[in-house]
C-alpha cells in the first residue's frame, strides 16, 4: 500500500493513517482505531517513514513537518 499516488497526492489509506498518527498512537492502536489490518498499517507506516512523512519514537508514531504539511494540503 504505497502512501503516495502517481500524481504526488497522499493515498486514501495513508491519509487515514496520518490523521490518526497525528495523535501519537502505536501502530496497534492505529489498526484498532481505523479498522485497517495491522499488517497494512505496518506496511503503510514503513512507507510513510521511508518517504520522510513520519517517524517512530519509543513505539509511537509522529508526523514530520513535511508529513503535517502534506496532510494539511490533502484535507484542505
Amino acid at each position: 500500500m504505497a502512501c503516495i499516488n502517481a500524481d504526488g497526492a497522499l493515498t486514501e489509506a495513508a491519509t487515514t493513517l496520518m490523521k490518526v498518527i497525528i495523535d501519537h498512537h502505536s501502530l496497534e492502536e492505529v489498526a484498532s482505531i481505523t479498522d485497517i489490518p495491522l499488517y497494512l498499517v505496518r506496511a503503510t507506516a514503513r512507507d510513510l517513514i521511508d518517504t520522510g512523512l513520519a517517524f517512530e519514537k519509543d513505539g509511537s508514531f509522529y508526523l514530520t513537518d513535511l508529513g503535517s504539511e502534506k496532510l494539511k494540503q490533502t484535507v484542505a
Binding site: M1, A2, Y39, L40, A43, T44, D47
Partner: peptide, 8 residues
Amino acid sequence: QGTLRLSD
C-alpha cells in the same frame, strides 16, 4: 496491497 514483509 503494496510491498509487504512476513514480519508485517
